[in-house]
Nucleic acid binder design. Structure first.
Lengths: 242, 242
DNA sequence: CGACAACTTGACGGGCGTCAACCGGAGTGG
DNA sequence: CCACTCCGGTTGACGCCCGTCAAGTTGTCG
């Protein structure tokens, strides 16, 4: 019960940041049929090739999208956190073209794609919000193409840290100079097109330079200006999603 | 005059492939205010940081999107051809987050973003078509992240060729085994995260293996099965846009 | 406290970048 | 009509960043 309300509240908060909603929009969102589910770490939420019937909202925890190359190599194409809607990329397609998997324990809320589509058809402001969210995702994908295509290992990882920190803070997670980095170094490697060994080398180097420090899964940013400089990070591509 | 009709026809054809339109949809599209422009090769159509007021349709010719890294490195994030709408990625944002540039001489048609937005609000089928188009672009971005992140040089280039051939054919350009490859090897390098020198080496190698042959700007595919195998190409991510 | 995943570190090798030279075709101007 | 220029393509030599392999350490959970 209460977790359903949490889910609705999370979605409303997210959409509210993307477009100006009125009360009737908010009550239409509240009327969505929602099923809440607990998911352990590593659970698949969407599988490539399967039909995406329900649309998934991440209420708590972290998840990531990934695709597999023919040789078995895995490429993570985005990370997701509390409040993110994970299936809008599939909203108008029958078949999923990538996988989504939890990275930690998570609570997810499912709602039928049909219901969301209908909401979008009836309510232009909600349609705009959903559409804008998918466009921000697309902008992030483009930045990732640049990241893996044209930056060296140290820069790539620094950039990934900047983006994750910015988004985490926008989602109300972590503090200005400290946030949780829930993924393993192998997952960082799969996101940046590197191996876990080399990710480790670069993280150690950034640590030795005093740019970041690590306490367990937490990252403490010692020098934001330098981290941004190393990363070549400009948050414009996040379009105020952060 | 006639080129305006060409532009409307091209857009209608494109949207028709993305959603089922009726006559009223078609006449609404035909009523869009359109300005047709000739653009020489290398012309910027959209600049990062500028406001995207008008939305651009590519009537003939080729174009590409790109972003610049801090060190001056350029990453091309997509190629575009006849019939593609180039600004839907900016439709709901004030500021462009990447550049779009022609790759050949081109004819482009401009229509106010506002007019398209309004059309989308009034006509759910057109909204679906436009939205679906942006989702396909996003799916292609994800595949490119995989391409530059997890495939070696030869595979990357082969994959890029497969995608371009598939999309060109869907756009009614080229034959089953021969198509124009309008970009320079440096542009191929910027799209695949390689240098033009290495692109050349790989193209020569694919030629020596009999997979492809080149006649000027044209590519002749000698062995489709092998090219697809080398590339690890599966067209599912194009979602029948090809 | 044992098992297992994740992290850490070192040695070595290769794929691709860098630099440099040369070639070939298309456009240009005398 | 030919010489000049320039851009793009082609090829070789060399070196480095990062992958690979392997061993050891730390941390966590049962």
């Amino acid at each position: 019960m209460t977790s359903q309300n949490d889910a609705i509240a999370a979605m409303t908060r997210k959409l509210e940041r993307l477009a100006r909603l009125d009360d009737s929009d908010r009550s239409a969102i509240a009327a969505l049929p929602v099923t809440v589910q607990f998911a352990p770490s590593g659970q698949y939420l969407v599988r490539e090739g399967n039909e995406a019937v329900n649309c998934c909202l991440l209420v708590t925890g972290y998840a990531f999208r990934h695709k597999l190359a023919q040789d078995g190599g895995r490429q993570i194409v985005s990370f997701h956190m509390r409040g993110d809607m994970l299936d809008l990329q599939h909203l108008l397609f029958p078949i999923a073209d990538h996988n989504i998997q939890t990275m930690t324990e998570a609570i997810v809320a499912w709602t039928p794609c049909r219901a969301l589509q209908q909401l979008a058809h009836e309510r232009p402001r909600i349609a705009d919000a959903l559409w804008r969210d998918t466009l921000i995702d697309a902008s992030i994908f483009r930045e990732w193409v640049l990241n893996v295509g044209r930056r060296d290992a140290r820069t790539r990882i620094a950039h990934m840290l900047c983006e994750f920190a910015a988004r985490a803070q926008a989602a109300g997670l972590g503090a200005a100079d400290r946030f949780e980095l829930p993924m393993t170094q192998e997952q960082i490697g799969d996101a940046t097109g590197l191996t876990s060994v080399h990710v480790n080398r670069m993280l150690m180097q950034l640590g030795a330079e005093g740019v970041i420090a690590r306490r367990g899964k937490d990252v403490i940013v010692g020098d934001w200006a330098k981290l941004r400089r190393v990363a070549g990070f400009d948050a414009a591509y996040l379009h105020d999603a952060a």
